[in-house]
Design a protein around this nucleic acid. Structure first.
Length: 158
DNA sequence: GCCAACGTTGGC
DNA sequence: GCCAACGTTGGC
């Protein structure tokens, strides 16, 4: 079985919870991606994401939503223990410790960029298919096509 | 604060 | 298994 080509992803984070600055300030600039509580996003982590994959670090639910930095997948998946913590906002009372529902992986921030906002993204016809631009999109982890990655990172790193 | 879109829940 | 009600997301 041949390995898939290098993969790219967009991961949403509320900056009040974990911003690109917060991630860069963490040890090794690496943070555990806690709180994914959607099966499709979980399955992307479990079945699709590999160490080294590129990540667009996206700020959501904030004054300036958009891509705010570049990161990479830094680990495989493991159990997200916040699902068992009644004090956590991510507590899931229906998840049993012997049969955990939710996983996380580590994300390593590589650099902060300017914010590439949704309006600017919509100006680019080549980005029109991105999930994050679709109306009603709520998925917190979405695949990014190589061409989309190239265009976005070139604009951000120019 | 509004509201559209979507996932989940639960009665049947 | 259907589907209406409900809760959440997230841009505006």
């Amino acid at each position: 079985m041949t390995l898939p080509p290098t993969r790219y992803w967009l991961m949403k984070s509320e900056p009040e919870d974990c911003s690109i600055d917060d991630a860069l300030a963490a040890p090794d600039a690496t943070v555990p991606w806690t709180g994914v509580r959607n099966y499709q996003a979980r399955n992307f982590m479990r079945d699709g994401m590999q160490v080294g994959d590129g990540v667009l670090f996206y700020h959501s639910s904030c004054a300036e939503p958009g891509v705010a930095g570049i990161a990479r997948v830094a680990s495989g998946t493991r159990v997200d223990t916040t699902q068992f913590d009644p004090a956590s906002p991510y507590f899931d009372p229906k998840s049993a410790p012997d049969k955990p529902r939710w996983l996380l992986l580590d994300v390593q921030a590589l650099r902060k960029t300017r914010v590439l906002g949704l309006a600017e993204m919509r100006e680019q016809p080549a980005l029109a298919a991105m999930r994050v631009l679709q109306r009603g999109n709520r998925l917190s982890i979405t695949p990014v096509e190589p061409g989309e990655w190239e265009l976005i990172t070139q604009r951000l790193l120019a």
